[in-house]
């Protein structure tokens, strides 16, 4: 990933890439007319975007504390976020207008993007190293 020393730019980069990848399922859901899938996916994606922002704010706050306090703070905040995920998935499962699996995939989209981009970066680095070794 680029911008590893600037958290705000990194967040923007992650969001940009996530939305770019998310266009594919959104457009395919629009074409097939599966509105519950579209709504569920967008619902999950929006919540995961907001939770990324919340996580950034929590980390920034935690770094101003001492070690033990930060540990406890982040642990407590994780369980609050976990409860939010529970509410989102519960809502998606109960509501007939939202597809549960699409909402789950929307929530995971950002994580998949980060993992995918890291693997691609590793792949690119290894290819570059091999090219340099040939020179």
């Amino acid at each position: 990933m680029k911008n590893m020393d600037n958290p705000i730019k990194l967040q923007k980069e992650i969001l940009k890439k996530t939305y770019l990848i998310a266009l594919l399922p959104i457009v395919s859901a629009l074409i097939t007319g599966a509105m519950d899938v579209l709504l569920g996916f967008v619902f999950g994606l929006v919540i995961s975007t907001l939770l990324l922002r919340l996580k950034y704010n929590n980390i920034r706050r935690a770094l101003k504390m001492d070690e033990e306090k930060a540990e406890k703070f982040i642990r407590n905040r994780y369980f609050i976020e976990y409860a939010m995920y529970l509410i989102v998935l519960f809502t998606a499962a109960r509501n007939q207008d939202l597809n549960f699996l699409a909402a789950a995939v929307g929530l995971f989209m950002m994580k998949f993007t980060v993992i995918l981009w890291t693997i691609l970066d590793l792949f690119k680095d290894s290819i570059q190293q091999k090219l340099e070794s040939y020179k």
């Binding site: 990933m1 911008n3 590893m4 020393d5 600037n6 958290p7 990194l10 967040q11 990324l52 996580k55 950034y56 980390i59 920034r60 770094l63 982040i74 950002m110 994580k111 980060v114 993992i115 890291t118």
Partner: peptide, 13 residues
């Protein structure tokens, strides 16, 4: 900055 970004990515995953 580097620590925040590494932590953000690590925690998100």
């Amino acid at each position: 900055g580097n620590i925040i970004t590494t932590m953000l990515l690590g925690q998100a995953v």
